[in-house]
């Protein structure tokens, strides 16, 4: 049975907000991204409500984020200097989390999308390629570049438990 747009937003906005935040690394940008994706979803609600509207919103967010990144990338910093280790009063895990979030901001939008889809949404490379509308080879390349970059930016991720990606 199809739900209303309002019901959908109420039920799914927490999860969608988390994805938006990981994609942007910034609450303000994440809010804008989710708002934009939901606005587009609302316009096409009659068509998509009986399908998988959440997948639609996520797809819109991924593409929107890549599109925004292309417009903003001149201003972005893509240097490989390790991010400052989250420290102070935080626990070790909290420090690592903050470092990962900071490192994600240093990735390109597509790299970030691949990382979020692969390691947060737990999609296969084939599913990621479908969501992003690109080839599996492109996903592999962006994933490889992203991991290599994260390794440079957050060495702690590897120093503790070195392991290989399963796929």
């Amino acid at each position: 049975m199809s739900e209303t747009f309002h019901e959908f937003v109420v039920q799914r906005s927490p999860a969608l907000s988390r994805t938006a935040y990981l994609l942007t690394g910034d609450h303000q940008h994440a809010e804008d991204l989710l708002q934009s994706a939901l606005a587009r979803t609302y316009r096409h609600w009659r068509r998509i409500r009986d399908g998988d509207p959440e997948a639609y919103v996520r797809r819109v967010m991924y593409h929107q984020q890549v599109s925004w990144w292309r417009r903003r990338r001149v201003a972005e910093r893509l240097d490989a200097t390790p991010v400052e280790r989250g420290g102070g009063d935080h626990t070790e895990n909290t420090a690592l989390r903050l470092s990962v979030v900071a490192a994600l901001r240093r990735l390109t939008a597509r790299q970030r999308a691949v990382v979020v889809l692969r390691y947060y949404e737990d999609l296969t490379e084939t599913q990621v390629a479908e969501v992003l509308g690109c080839s599996v080879g492109t996903v592999k390349r962006h994933g490889h570049d992203a991991v290599r970059r994260l390794r440079d930016l957050v060495p702690d991720l590897w120093e503790r438990t070195p392991e290989r990606s399963g796929r």
Partner: peptide
Amino acid sequence: MSVRLREALREAAAEV
């Protein structure tokens, strides 16, 4: 690495 990355991502997302 992927396990720790997954954990870090979920922890980062959990507070959103």
